[in-house]
Amino acid sequence: MDFDKADHESPYLSFLAAEFQKRGTKLRRTLSNKTKVHRMLREITVGGTHIGLPQQYNVLTSPNQITSESLGERAALKFAHGWSARGVMLLERTGAERYFDHFSLREWSLQEIREKQQETTASFPKKKPAWIIEEMLHGPQPGTIPFDYKFYMFQGQIGLVSQIDRNSSPLRNAFFDGNLNPLVEEQDFRLSSKIQPAAPLVPRSAVMLSRWAVELSQMTDAPFVRVDLYDTENGPYFGEFTFSSGAEHRRTIKFSRKMLNTFDHMFVNAEKMLNSDAVDLPESWSTLLQSTDSEALASQPLLSVTEYERLAHYLYNQGELGGFRLAEAQEALADHGADAAVNQYVSEAHRSAARWVKADRKSPPRGLREALQQVRKDHPPAQVIARKAHRTFRRLMQ
Rank of each mutant, 00 (worst) to 15 (best):
S14T: 15
V202H: 08
L229W: 04
E134F: 04
G82E: 01
L60K: 11
F263A: 08
K362E: 11
L326R: 14
R361V: 14
Q218C: 06
A76Q: 11
S32Y: 00
K362P: 01
D360C: 08
Y12L: 14
T252W: 08
T220W: 04
L321R: 08
T30L: 08
F100C: 05
P200R: 12
K362Q: 12
A332K: 14
S168N: 10
N173Y: 11
H81F: 11
T144S: 14
K388S: 10
T67K: 08
M40T: 05
A353K: 12
F147T: 11
T292R: 01
E19Q: 13
I195F: 08
A17W: 04
R226E: 09
Q318R: 15
I385V: 04
T94D: 11
I385R: 06
V227K: 04
R387Y: 05
L90V: 14
I195E: 10
Y12Q: 03
F238L: 04
N179I: 09
A353F: 05
S291K: 07
A349F: 03
S70L: 10
I132S: 11
E92M: 04
V161E: 08
K272C: 10
V305Y: 02
D7M: 11
G156R: 02
E348T: 15
Y316D: 13
H38V: 07
Q117C: 13
E69A: 07
E186G: 00
N261M: 05
L201S: 12
I113W: 02
H38W: 06
D101C: 07
K78A: 03
A341W: 00
Q141P: 03
P182N: 09
I385S: 05
V46M: 00
S109Y: 04
P11Y: 10
V268K: 06
D4I: 01
L288F: 00
Q218V: 01
A76S: 13
Q56L: 07
F147P: 00
E248C: 03
P63D: 06
R28G: 03
E134G: 05
H50V: 00
S162D: 08
A198Q: 15
S363Q: 04
F147Q: 14
T306V: 04
W83Q: 05
D228M: 10
S352W: 08
T292P: 03
L297E: 06
R204D: 06
D7K: 12
D101M: 09
G322N: 02
T120E: 11
T67A: 06
L281Y: 05
R250G: 01
P200Q: 12
V161G: 12
R355C: 10
G87T: 05
L105G: 07
E112L: 02
I132P: 08
Q330H: 05
V342S: 03
V279M: 00
M89N: 06
G322E: 06
S70F: 06
E97C: 01
Q344F: 07
T45V: 00
E233W: 02
L60R: 07
Y99N: 13
N269F: 07
E186M: 00
A76T: 14
I195A: 09
L71R: 11
H313A: 15
R28W: 00
L13P: 14
V375Y: 02
T94V: 12
A340S: 01
R361I: 09
M153I: 04
E119M: 07
S68K: 03
M219C: 09
F100P: 06
K26S: 03
N167H: 12
V161A: 12
Q56E: 09
S84F: 00
A353I: 14
R39P: 01
H8A: 05
F324S: 12
P125S: 08
